[in-house]
Amino acid sequence: MTVAAGIGYALLALGPSLSLFVSVISHKPFLVLTVLSSTLLWLMSLIALSAIWRAFLPIRSSSSSWLPFSILIFTSVVFQEGLRILFWRVYKKLEDILDAFADRVSKPRLFLTDKMQIALAGGLGHGVAHAVFFCLSLLTPAFGSATFYVEKCSQMPFFLVSALIALVFVTIHTFSMVIAFNGYAERNKVDQLIVPVVHLIAGMLTLVNLAPEGCIFGIPLLYLMAIFTLVYCGKMVWKRLTERESRPRFVANLS
């Protein structure tokens, strides 16, 4: 394939997040900084994980190797979910500082939508980091005049498969951060739990790709997970926003 194909794969994986970035994030410098720092955090988590797993690599990719891979995915997901809690703690401190600063310059405190945007930016950073390191950085050969097929998935070029999967994970990472932050803020156990569960299920679903031609079933299942995350996040945000809108009106009526 050629340059067109390479750009196509890159946009397939990162196009939605690019438009999200341009439309929501890029106007607000603070959100850009949030994206950058969350990307850095994810990169560091990946480096730490690879440092742990370096000794056991490479894992032979025979069909019986699902066990080591599942352990790998399990540890990675657990590690990253732990990191999410850390990220929340840091964010909580930052929010206090920001509110104090807003008071000082007599600007309004952070709105609910602001908080959600920060969460979105944090999630986007995670997602973009995922897509960049698992998909985009492998795309270099796709710009050349050849393509590459994996044995296990002979229907599609490897780059297409990885771009498709990366899109799923970008979506999941981005919106599950919103869900998780809301869950932490509201102390909603369901929201808190659903995020690692979705992440783990999505990670485990990629094990289907180990089976011959497994990607034909694996990728639709992954997309189901992504759609589920999207819908759940949308519902939750809608609920929060509508109840938030009605509450001030109520207060206004009282006073």
Binding site: L46, I47, W53
Partner: peptide, 24 residues
């Protein structure tokens, strides 16, 4: 620091997992 960490540690890990279409 990140260059050498990435080159020595991360690249084999990421290549190993993603060429098997493992992602998380």
């Amino acid at each position: 620091l990140f260059y050498f960490l990435t080159r020595l540690l991360m690249e084999p890990f990421v290549l190993g997992t993603s060429t098997n279409l493992m992602m998380f």
